[in-house]
Design a protein around this nucleic acid. Structure first.
Lengths: 167, 167
DNA sequence: TTTGAAATACCCTCACT
DNA sequence: AGTGAGGGTATTTCAAA
């Protein structure tokens, strides 16, 4: 049962535009059943959405860099993610353990743009930056290995519980 | 002209399953014209594919970490990306400037799995590792700001050239 | 949950502009 | 490049098991 959901999710991470007809063939179920399962996976948040994968080079964003930041004044409230969210050059923002507070993934057109974005990061969030330039990307955003329970969006439940028992 | 392509790519990065009918309405063109433009964007490599965005928590991969690696013996041939590609826990691999050689993005179920993967990384590629655990992810894989030329997959061409002139 | 069928909507090609 | 129309296919809902 769960195995079918996993197969569906695996197939859709590889090709998000697979038709229900194709999916049905792959998992050995009727089109209607697959359709309903996909809808439930979307509702449960297992599938959060669909996106076209684009070439950043083609979009004229050939320079990628990691920017580690830490506050200039650690006593101030730490709201760097919100303060930086308006910068479209920031692809991702991770809160990290270790010496730095956040790790940002930045994509820009070239060194001049990187310099500008670093200045904007520093002034917007009152932080210092330490930047690591990406020279090439052997692979990125690979589809994950899918195994386990595919629960709502937390971890697998330890045991089955009778439907509707919240008492 | 180019503006329409940018609008199409922007829409598709937001929702990769948009129908050509919806796309046509958004960009103010006929369904056929939009269809042809999307096909050309795919052929030129601007759109590399489509994927479902999934919840890593729901897939029982709640722990993310960055693993910086450098070779134990720098004189040996550096083929770490290929040597590590078989590990499904590695989401991305970046070749970086700076003290480290590569930066890996790893997703696992928990600390025990992280330990195992780190050992596999070290033995598979003969490298040392320095790991930064991700505590939370304020945002990730945001759609890029789209502007510019949308060229094949490199930078904008300086000028047009006659079709089919490779001589 | 699954199935099959029926209606709607979409995909995709083609001829013309 | 863009349009509109056509046949073919996919999506979506529904009754039934």
């Amino acid at each position: 049962m769960e195995e079918i959901d996993r197969a569906i999710v695996a197939a859709l991470t590889g090709d998000g535009r697979l038709s229900y007809t194709d999916l049905a063939e792959r998992v050995g179920l009727s089109v209607s059943a697959v359709h309903q399962r996909v809808r439930r996976l979307e509702q449960r948040g297992v599938i959060k959405g669909y996106a076209a994968r684009v070439s950043f080079e083609a979009l004229d964003l050939p320079l990628t860099a990691f920017v580690a930041i830490r506050p200039f004044d650690p006593s101030q409230p730490d709201d760097a993610p919100e303060r930086l969210a308006h910068l479209p050059e920031i692809d991702s923002c991770y809160s990290v353990a270790g010496e730095d507070f956040y790790l940002l993934l930045v994509r820009v057109a070239g060194p001049a743009d990187l310099e500008r974005v670093l200045q904007e990061i520093r002034t917007s969030a009152n932080v210092t930056t330490r930047t690591t330039v990406v020279l090439s990307t052997p692979y990125e955003n690979r589809p994950p290995k899918i195994s386990g329970e595919l629960t709502g969006r937390g971890r697998p439940r330890p045991s089955a519980e009778p439907a509707g028992s919240t008492a």
